[in-house]
Design a protein around this nucleic acid. Sequence first.
RNA 1: GCCACUAUAGCUCAGUAGGUAGAGCACCACCAUGGUAAGGUGGGGGUCAUCGGUUCAAAUCCGAUUAGUGGCUCCA
Length: 634
Amino acid sequence: MKVKLPDGSVREYEGKMTALDVVRDISEGLARVACAVKIDGEVHGLTTELTGDIDEFVVLKFEDEGGKDTYRHTASHIMAQAVKRIWPDAKVAIGPAIENGFYYDFDVEKPFSPEDLTKIEAEMKKIIAEDYPVKRFELPRDEALKLMEEKQEPYKVELINDLPEDAIISFYTQGDFTDLCAGPHLPSTGRVRSYKLLSAAGAYWRGSEKNKMLQRIYATAFDNKKDLKKHLNMLEEAKKRDHRKLGKELELFALMEEGPGFPFFLPKGMIIKNELVNYWREVHRKADYVEISTPIILSRQLWETSGHWTHYRENMYTTQIDENDFAIKPMNCPGGMLVYKMKPHSYKELPMRVGELGLVHRHEMSGALHGLMRVRSFTQDDAHLFMLPEQIKEEIKKTIALIDEIYTVFGFSYHMELSTRPEKSIGRDEDWELATNSLKDALDEEGLEYVINEGDGAFYGPKIDFHLEDCIGRTWQCGTIQADFQMAERFELEYIGADGQKHRPVMIHRVAYGSLERFIGILIEHFAGTFPVWLSPVQAKMLTITDRSNDYAYEVASLLESRGIRCEVDTRNEKIGFKIREARNERVPYIAVIGDKEIEESTLSVRMRGKKEDTILSPQELADKIADDVLNKK
RNA sequence: GCCACUAUAGCUCAGUAGGUAGAGCACCACCAUGGUAAGGUGGGGGUCAUCGGUUCAAAUCCGAUUAGUGGCUCCA
């Protein structure tokens, strides 16, 4: 039997060999850190018996794709084993590895408490110390069913029942625990080193709210303590940056019991919101957009035309005016359609780019609300683009460039995903084809990378989603570009072509921020509250040492204010150390200390963010510096 | 909406064999005019989320409601 390694070398073996034997033959050290192997493109466990020649034999360590999942999947079985030892009546459901860890779902009498998690962790420690070999075995479907019925595992029985009649079902067993599982796994439980149970929460069996609510335990595992600690620190860091906490501390926004999911913006948060709007208007003006504003409340007839009254009803707030039904808009498009339809359009006017910062309201489920990230009223930085079919590709390219420009200003990296026609969809095949190809071609021609989500588009058209990554590595879906055949059709949009005939334009809607509210939430976490100067609610603060400096401080402040700089003066009867502490906690980028010396020399002692030493500047120089930051969006 | 948990002063939190509330910060007053992350002293402030029940007595036990948190589902 020949085994070809990634370095091109070939090793020959005789007799029965497992993957682990080969890994050991390569090096004992490697065997200690190996989690799985990739054999001819497929990930297998180390105990897999090898048959025949192998063209590709890659050892997967924890850090390799496949290795991590194998490791964490084994950890999840250990967790399930521990739970079954403590609560023998618990029914196990599924327990996969996920992005940063793993979970396992259980059907138990009582939900898990934090103390239970500690207990489970302790039991896991024992199982790991007992170092059971993890063995795989296979059964035909009927025997597999019998085994799981005997073990009284109804969820596993259900899973097996969904498999084909002739399926060979694989199981893994470790000590007193046997689980239905496709694998792969580590060779023994002792291989799991660093793990931590994180939380317990309800989760529906198979993700459907029609099913029973199970108890899910989220946990994570790493192959060394250092990385586990690093990950836990990252979670801590994320907690510290939580926009709900910072939003309260920095007085940016508030959520009140009187308006669940309807955020209040406080003066400082409003400055950020307005700066985002100003910037948005600036870039859109340059990109030849016009801006409109359409009403928040519109008649039932309109929503019937758009289809929302029947398809989106449960998310809409409705009201009556003079005995007629009205709805508060959950989306801006219908209003935009009405504006387009006000007068006939020539093909010479297209493309038309019509922006709207539209405030929409959606009745989201109470349990879905989350700070500014998920609210019931929010402002979309919407725009509707009307164009000729042959203009789609170019418009898509321009829109991508626009969104790219916006994200780059905030220092976000991002990736794109293209979602294609879902099974349940409306529209003509040729429209879908044209739109999908236009999106694809635009991406390809610009040399952009993207993921394709087959069948994940909206029912009315394909879309490109932008997923931006914040500075601690979390991703957020913000921008989207969607082709929409339904609106143009339903509202019977038209333009007069060169042939003098009426034609249907192609309509695209797109957002860049997504929603101002969510984007602000993301910005708060991305910058951990330390906003760039142009977004800082207070850009400079004058701190006086004694009240002899007050006049000079006000003088400097009015100079800065005349340059449009947001400036505050702290003349309170407090020590300078105290004032500095507060100004720093408020994340003010330029903190100027003013005492007798500064008055004498007509200077400022400026403490800039990230610098230990003060910089001596004239008031004019400070104003120039801040103006420069603002101009360059720093 | 569903499962679990939480709700005490503006903020962060103490307060269990049920006996009608406490700290720090913030706020106010006074003293100190002090040079780079909290100067000192004093003071005001709470229908213990809301409603109901058990009890001689409820912040504390029970139930409901509201809101929040962690998830599920959904999503900008």
